[in-house]
Design a protein around this nucleic acid. Structure first.
Lengths: 331, 331
DNA sequence: CCATTGGATTGAATCGTTTCAATTCCAGGA
DNA sequence: TCCTGGAATTGAAACGATTCAATCCAATGG
């Protein structure tokens, strides 16, 4: 495999000059640059990442840790996120290293190994818990990171999040505008930070519309289609009256719609349904699901931009991205 | 950050000895090893990945290229796969580098950059096309890789695949055993290799049961829930009689079930439905979907095992993994 | 008591870059 | 013609690990 020396020899210059061309550092006469570039192309030369990393003390790699075990992600939303991150990384010539681990303790060990071994320059945390043990660990070890999502108490660290509260306020206002007064709400356990914020938004939305928060209309259930299905069946069988339903995630909304169908109530006609995320399946649902879109590209770009700042020793300010209400036929 | 010299100094030995301890190469007296290990622990030392890579000419990193653009994956199946791969990598102390790219040409450039720059030791190819431009490129460049899936003509290269044909034969036999004679089949375009094999399995299953292949029962449609839904509606509206339906993927089967529901025919009762993949949603469907499970852990392990062999210059033989018929209530 | 043996340890070269400091080059001014 | 100064180029020293070859040492055998 060609090295920088080979290129230098071929172009009739020193390795230093090649390096200057490669990195646009140092002054190089245009025609020399030309010669060097030609040599690079002819040899199909690519700089050795390890050597470069060793000298520059940078690996240009983003670490992404996926939770495993029971917290293993199965929401298709995360696949979208990975894609968006990949694209955003490509924009900045970064690579994305994915690591999984078996238990929370291994999590922290893995973080140390990757960072101290300089395999990655910093981390992206997704799927935060309201109290996440990784955060204090990273902070006190001085490891740069950016979280997708916030945590309880909101210690000072950089994060990017979608404004779940704003989204839900908008959803409620939208439904109220259509005359709905009894709006059910389906949520996963509030220990999920995003669930907590979205639920707060629902509450705020109600109070802005001078509607009471009714316990019976709020259901906490599992973060799956099945969870949404069961909770809705419960609502129906208990005879709690409602004309609209908001689910904290599309997956749950999809489950809810199935329960409504089975009970002979057509979503979008008899009951308005709104979800959150805008996963690909949402548009294909019957009827197509009205939902709050998480603007993936924007999220990916914001995360990487913030990550770069963090890695460069800045303390980037958090970013709150507004979701987008996508009106379809379910509400 | 501590280096190997720091560890050596602290343990009162030379860097060489530390290296021997680290890699279990070379003879080291037990008590010396003890001292070294203690020093490592005390300093929280982790070897520098770049330096190691430079010397060993190995990055211990697996490259995984995700397709983007229109071929972007949205099937949740891939999230499972990424997880399984992550776990399998962890077993061998490997890291998983994910790269996305915008177009097929960029694909090849990216491959070169990652491999020639020694950022990865080889690749894992997923989401193969029946004729995939990446394969000849990798082969002629002598870059080690393993494919998840086969391609047309089946050139000599290492792959791991789930035996879609066997699975479909089993599905047909199972349905025939229950007395079904008119079995519909939903498939994405046969340019997807897996779709091709699965369809062949369906054909074989029919002929083994001495049933004719009936054109009207076979529908080619999009690889989404929506695709399954539409194809099934078409079947129903055209009045083609059938008592069972096999879909090439769970997502499509889910769509089919919805169409059946809407037409007032209960899946599992009026019409038997079988899917393929066993995505998490399958178990939660109504009724729970009978399907052929792709044994993810096994796939991940096989892929990584084969990959390691390929990277070590061996020519590992292909692996065909049988899917597992999971009987639930839909058939 | 010395030579031999073989395990344990170490010194130093090396991997392929980047970058500082030193050198060369060249044009323009004195 | 000789300086001077800035631009262009180069040599060589890192960066942090691995590993070959050389050295050290203790025990054994003659």
């Amino acid at each position: 495999m060609a090295t920088i020396r080979d290129v230098a020899r071929r172009a009739g210059v020193s390795p230093a000059t090649v390096s200057y061309v490669l990195n646009n550092s140092g002054p190089v006469r245009p025609e020399t640059r030309e010669r060097v570039l030609r040599a690079i192309a002819e040899l199909g030369y690519h700089p050795h990442a390890g050597a470069r990393q060793l000298k520059r003390r940078r690996s240009d790699t983003v670490g992404l840790i996926l939770p495993t075990g029971e917290r293993r992600l199965s929401d298709p939303f995360f696949l979208e996120l990975i894609h968006a991150l990949g694209d955003a990384c490509a924009d900045h010539q970064l690579d994305l290293l994915i690591a999984t681990c078996r238990d929370p303790a291994a999590d922290l060990r893995l973080i140390d190994r990757l960072y101290k071994g300089r395999r990655v320059d910093g981390f992206l945390l997704i799927d935060l818990q309201r109290q996440d043990p990784r955060i204090p660990h990273l902070r006190q070890a001085g490891i740069p990171f950016v979280a997708f999502g916030r945590v309880e108490g909101n210690g000072e660290f950089p994060w990017v999040d979608v404004d779940g509260a704003a989204g839900m306020r908008e959803a409620v206002a939208y439904l109220v505008g259509k005359g709905h007064r009894r709006i059910a709400y389906l949520s996963p356990p509030l220990s999920f930070t995003f669930a907590y914020h979205r639920f707060r938004g629902y509450q705020q939305g109600l109070s802005e519309a001078d509607l009471p928060l009714e316990e019976a209309l709020v259901r906490i259930t599992r973060l799956t289609m099945e969870g949404g299905y069961e909770a809705t069946r419960a609502l129906l069988s208990e005879g709690v009256p409602f004309t609209a339903l908001i689910a904290a995630t599309d997956l749950m909304a999809l489950g809810a719609m199935r329960a409504l169908h089975e009970a002979g109530r057509t979503p979008g006609q008899d009951v308005a349904v709104i979800g959150f995320d805008d996963i690909p399946m949402a548009a294909q649902a019957h009827p197509p699901l009205t939902t709050l879109r998480q603007p993936m590209d924007q999220i990916g770009k914001a995360l990487i931009r913030t990550w770069l700042a963090a890695v460069n020793g800045e303390s980037p300010s958090p970013t709150l991205i507004p979701p987008l209400l996508i009106r379809r036929e379910s509400a």
